[in-house]
Nucleic acid binder design. Sequence first.
DNA 1: GACAATTCGTTAGCCTGCTAACTATTAGCG
DNA 2: CGCTAATAGTTAGCAGGCTAACGAATTGTC
Lengths: 152, 152
Amino acid sequence: MLDYDFDESIGYWLTVTTQRYHRAFNDALVPYGITFRQSQVLGWLALEGELSQAELAGKMMIEPPTLVRILDRMERDGLIRRRPCPTDRRRKLIGATAKSKPVWAKIVECAKGIRARATDGLTDRQQATLKKLLGRVHENLLLTPPTELSDR
Amino acid sequence: MLDYDFDESIGYWLTVTTQRYHRAFNDALVPYGITFRQSQVLGWLALEGELSQAELAGKMMIEPPTLVRILDRMERDGLIRRRPCPTDRRRKLIGATAKSKPVWAKIVECAKGIRARATDGLTDRQQATLKKLLGRVHENLLLTPPTELSDR
DNA sequence: GACAATTCGTTAGCCTGCTAACTATTAGCG
DNA sequence: CGCTAATAGTTAGCAGGCTAACGAATTGTC
């Protein structure tokens, strides 16, 4: 029994910490009627201008079908616009609307607040270390499983 | 413009790393027909024996309504059993079935494999640091937002 | 130029998160 | 004792993850 280091491990802390982070972020954004992922969409559009859905999904590291519904809601709420791409009729270009501008300003405020709360008590060096370690774990898991035991 | 350190920050890395982790875990568990959260339920039951739903939700750090549906599916699949508590008719005690035993053994295998992959190239000290830093961030976000700006 | 392979967005179906609101039961307090 | 408050589990409704599969359009190849 008690091979049960199982849950007191990296995966456990990743899970609960990320959950908390999203919860705090979403709570902070409630007054502006948007969510964490929606704020991220506006962030990328602010940074890069118009993007196709595939490009946006790539930057957000989510699958295209997941993005579709996020954009559906944002389009419904008038935060973004889908425009057919003039050179490739398969693509649609996503752009932020004028209505989203003031929302984006609020998001930046919120993001700063949450980050300050999240990193309270951590030195710059510790924050850098945390990012570096997370980056390594992420990279480790990026590869498809080696299927090394397929012949056992 | 470019207050957009926004997404190159802790929240970003937390999000993508955790996503990857869950994806890897779920992928590895597909052959056994269960998911990450279901495996966690079995883990807690293996460790603690019968638990009420509120206790289980507390240990898993999720809300009771979220747990209900997870348990519904597991009960449907014969992995757990809900038993009325003899001393409190509101409570239900959750227990693992005999059918879940071999599944649990497989989970332990998978968990070890994923963890090994995730922490590849990290020393024990680095893993401890990662857990410690995640723990601090989690703790920072645990408190309800101070509502310090409510009067502005 | 025609046909196969690929890419883009979408839909459907499943699992997981949350809050709000409800029922049933228990606990607490006058 | 009796009434209120709190607790356990559930349901409904919304947002977000994924895969599989599909139609439309483009790219690649012979």
